[in-house]
Simulated scan of single mutants.
Amino acid sequence: MSELPFRAREKLLEKQKHFQSVHKHTHLKGPLDKITSVAIPLALAATSIYLIGRGIYNLSHGIGKKE
């Protein structure tokens, strides 16, 4: 008794041709990988820089101290 494959052979060959034809880094080969590899880290970095800057500003001006 043989098991059914997870994907059809035609789909698998199509995906292999796509990944072998792209001449980019391995982590940027998929169609939506730019979002996970570039956009999300940039958003996290921008948010952390903003929060650090706000914290330094508040610290230097004495804002938000508990009495």
Results as ranks from 00 to 15, higher is better:
58 N>F: 05
9 R>P: 00
39 A>L: 13
53 G>R: 01
20 Q>M: 14
5 P>T: 04
52 I>G: 01
22 V>G: 01
28 L>T: 11
12 L>N: 02
60 S>D: 08
49 I>D: 12
7 R>S: 08
38 V>M: 07
45 A>W: 06
23 H>G: 08
55 G>P: 02
2 S>M: 12
19 F>G: 00
50 Y>R: 11
55 G>L: 07
42 L>W: 03
26 T>G: 00
17 K>Q: 10
27 H>Y: 10
10 E>V: 14
27 H>Q: 09
60 S>P: 00
10 E>L: 09
7 R>M: 14
2 S>A: 14
16 Q>T: 00
9 R>N: 10
19 F>I: 13
36 T>F: 06
40 I>W: 03
12 L>H: 02
60 S>M: 13
10 E>H: 05
58 N>Y: 07
60 S>N: 11
53 G>Y: 00
66 K>Q: 11
65 K>G: 04
67 E>P: 15
7 R>K: 10
41 P>A: 02
49 I>K: 06
23 H>I: 13
15 K>A: 09
22 V>I: 15
29 K>H: 02
58 N>E: 09
35 I>C: 03
14 E>L: 14
44 L>C: 14
45 A>I: 15
14 E>V: 06
65 K>M: 08
55 G>R: 06
42 L>F: 11
51 L>T: 07
55 G>V: 04
38 V>L: 06
67 E>M: 13
63 I>Y: 05
37 S>Y: 07
22 V>P: 01
22 V>S: 04
41 P>G: 01
7 R>P: 00
63 I>D: 02
2 S>G: 09
9 R>T: 10
37 S>F: 04
24 K>D: 12
62 G>E: 05
38 V>G: 00
13 L>S: 09
61 H>E: 05
10 E>K: 04
65 K>P: 01
31 P>M: 05
25 H>G: 04
7 R>Y: 14
60 S>C: 12
16 Q>W: 06
7 R>C: 02
14 E>W: 04
6 F>L: 15
51 L>D: 09
35 I>G: 03
27 H>T: 02
17 K>Y: 00
35 I>Q: 03
16 Q>L: 15
49 I>V: 15
17 K>E: 11
18 H>I: 15
49 I>H: 07
65 K>E: 06
21 S>I: 02
25 H>F: 10
15 K>M: 14
32 L>V: 13
39 A>E: 09
46 A>K: 07
20 Q>R: 09
67 E>F: 13
38 V>T: 07
44 L>F: 14
4 L>R: 14
45 A>E: 13
5 P>M: 03
57 Y>C: 15
6 F>Q: 14
56 I>T: 09
7 R>A: 08
15 K>H: 05
46 A>Q: 12
6 F>N: 08
10 E>M: 11
16 Q>N: 09
14 E>P: 00
47 T>H: 06
12 L>M: 12
27 H>S: 11
6 F>S: 04
8 A>V: 03
7 R>T: 03
28 L>N: 10
51 L>Q: 12
41 P>F: 03
48 S>H: 12
28 L>V: 05
19 F>H: 12
44 L>H: 11
49 I>G: 03
